[in-house]
């Protein structure tokens, strides 16, 4: 069976990202999954066990300090070289900023088509995309080269399939022309131990109705209680209540969790663009006419400052 390359994404604190496990799960339907770790020396051994658990047959350790020291260009070149060497049946990446950027460069290098933000990929290489705020389903296919796709997180359920992968070290030498954008510093901003927004199975979001940055504690408390991530509407972000990287919507993140809780969010079309493919939507809003109720599976018309603390308390009571 032909190899399918899965480009691994991992975070230092939390390890292999869930979307990578989704990719390995999809890859098994297309061929033999091989995981590609692009990073500094030691990156591959750190994630080896998890990749084995989800069925990687081979782990390509493409490691060099230079891969971390510059923005995506060296990673794209190293990946293109690997693709040329192993002729895979498909190449799968996460639809993260970096995943899309690597894939974009790869498409140009290889003269290959690219499908971004797919939510599904079948064995014949036909991908499903949800366009225009999730209102339109598009089936598409690469016609030049192999399927090169980026997958939106939370599109499939990762299924373990233990394997004993071979670790293959791949030599890299980074060309000067890939060293044009140097990363000088990486700065983490507050998030606590919460899951990443696009990967979380529960997202609790606050809108303008939350009223202040301080009041967002209410949103955070509920999120932490249910193990969720915190999101925000653009109005909440623009008002300085919450940082921009947590914005959900047309110009923010697209999330597709099991549960999306919208607190004090009206449900403007641009907000819906980022959350309407969530499995279950629950809304709390004091305006009976708020459009968010049109798509909520459960809605509470009421003051969030009364409803949310009571809900938080009720969850604690349930847990005893």
């Amino acid at each position: 069976m032909a190899e399918v390359l899965v480009v691994v994404e991992a975070a230092p604190a939390t390890g292999v990202k869930k979307v990578t496990l989704e990719l390995l799960t999809i890859a098994r339907a297309l061929g033999e999954p091989s995981a590609v770790v692009l990073g500094a020396p030691g990156a591959a051994t750190a994630v080896q066990d998890k990749l084995a658990e989800f069925g990687a047959r081979t782990i390509y350790a493409v490691q060099s300090e230079d891969l971390d020291a510059y923005l995506v260009a060296p990673k794209a070149t190293a990946l293109a070289d690997l693709i040329t060497a192993v002729s895979p049946a498909a190449v799968l990446l996460a639809a993260s900023q970096e995943g899309k950027e690597i894939a974009g460069r790869l498409a140009i290098k290889l003269g290959n088509g690219i499908l971004t933000d797919v939510v599904g990929l079948d064995a014949s290489g036909v991908a499903t995309q949800l366009a225009f705020a999730g209102s339109t389903v598009v089936k598409s296919r690469v016609t030049k080269g192999i399927p090169l796709v980026t997958l939106r997180p939370n599109s499939v359920t990762p299924v373990p399939a233990p394997a004993s992968p071979v670790l293959e070290n791949v030599a890299v030498e980074v060309a000067e022309n890939d060293k044009l954008a140097r990363v000088l510093n990486r700065v983490a901003e507050r998030k606590g131990s919460r899951p990443e927004l696009t990967e979380a199975s529960i997202v609790v979001s606050g809108g303008r109705g939350v009223g202040s940055a301080d009041n967002f504690k209410l949103v955070e408390e509920l999120a932490d209680l249910v193990g969720g991530a915190v999101g925000a509407s653009r109005a909440a972000v623009d008002s300085g209540f919450y940082p921009h990287q947590f914005q959900v919507g047309q110009t923010g993140k697209t999330v597709s969790p099991q549960l999306y809780l919208a607190l004090g969010i009206s449900g403007a079309i641009q907000h819906r663009a980022g959350m309407q493919t969530s499995k279950t939507i629950v809304a709390v809003n004091k305006d009976d006419e708020a459009p968010i109720f049109e798509l909520a599976d459960f809605g509470v018309v009421g003051d969030l400052f009364k409803v949310v603390p009571r809900a938080t308390e009720a969850i604690r009571e349930r847990r005893g």
């Binding site: 598409s140 296919r141 016609t143 030049k144 798509l295 809605g299 509470v300 018309v301 409803v307």
Partner: peptide
Amino acid sequence: GATSVVVEHGKRPPRQAGNKITD
């Protein structure tokens, strides 16, 4: 010159409103 092609597309049914209660 396209490197990919749309095979088909269609509208997704809009989400339905569920239960709504007043606090």
